[in-house]
Design a protein around this nucleic acid. Sequence first.
DNA 1: CAGTTCTGGATAGTGACACTTTCTACTATC
DNA 2: GATAGTAGAAAGTGTCACTATCCAGAACTG
Lengths: 206, 206
Amino acid sequence: MRISELSRKSGVPVPTIKYYLREGLLPSGERTGRNQADYGDEHLRRLKLVRALIDIGGLSIAAVGEVVGVLENADVVTHQVLGVVQRSMGTDEPPPADRASQDEVTALLARRGWDGMADDPAALALAGVVTAARKLGHHRFAAQLDAYAEASAGIARQDLDYVLLHARVDDVLESMVVATVLGDAALAALRRLAQRDASARLLGGG
Amino acid sequence: MRISELSRKSGVPVPTIKYYLREGLLPSGERTGRNQADYGDEHLRRLKLVRALIDIGGLSIAAVGEVVGVLENADVVTHQVLGVVQRSMGTDEPPPADRASQDEVTALLARRGWDGMADDPAALALAGVVTAARKLGHHRFAAQLDAYAEASAGIARQDLDYVLLHARVDDVLESMVVATVLGDAALAALRRLAQRDASARLLGGG
DNA sequence: CAGTTCTGGATAGTGACACTTTCTACTATC
DNA sequence: GATAGTAGAAAGTGTCACTATCCAGAACTG
């Protein structure tokens, strides 16, 4: 198919597709002439993935570039893909954390048996969140986190089951990306709904 | 205190504080002369909250403005604050959802007894996520959501308990904001850690 | 009390980001 | 043969969150 058909099927404007091609988010089509190229279903599929990462996951163009770079390197160890996706989703610089918060996070990780993850970007980000809470006078915030961690562990088990059960071998990587990014968005939405429900029950609906 | 001291204590540059004042994120100091004003602890506290909403919660300046607007309107019903905060955290326009996805979300809400929330922005966002998953060929994604919802409900109960137990009466609203925004960030970080742990256990660490 | 620093307020400028627009030379199609 | 579409390059656009500059006046400093 040609670029206009790719545009029509995906809903992405032609100039934007050209932009994604320039940025390496989409591989070039097969050249069939000096100014003609042919795109296939894999381009359409990739384009949809790119838009989902941007629109649903809120990833930047550069972050999407990293993710698709990993997807195209078939020799990357499966387990490593998760790290790249997760790094792409977080902020580049985790918020600064003080020692007390770091210690609280370290203790939490130890309680769960998640040792050796203390220098993971997510752990640093978590310590930054705890620090921010303390600065706002919420010193008991960290005590909440065990419950959060318990819930997260259950969800993570689900995510892995989903990927291993439903994905064909040749797109385990893509499934992990989808489960991570869309799962994040879905969880955030469900948390809002659950909060509203709990709040309505306790404080009275309005 | 004067603006330079407010800047020093908060770590926010003076020009940025002026900018926040202009945008209404921070109330003006008490004027003590033609070009002098006095700021108090409540300004420092508010400034820290604003930075937490921006840095940790990722809210835009406009969204922070809405949130602090609600915080300053003491006559707003407590239960409504949550709605404003949640709206500020999501995207303005939820992603488009097809009917099948909407039906799946409606069924999920019914199973949980969360009726009447079908037109909540979070429910629309969730339907949009399901639609995106379907477009990517992940039709079984919605089946995951019951587990997500169960976990979310547990967390929401925790959040409410936290606010009601630890907050003084005069800052229940601020505590709800903090619990919502920082809780979101903490949950996201813990989810990443839990995923890595689960992935390492199942696929072998690397 | 002269000189430097700081202040609130207004206006203009900056850099990053994600596109859009415009252009050119060529190709496909009616 | 006229019209529309195409690849690729370069320049432009709008938004966002600051950041810089200016000004008249106030405040500390020696």
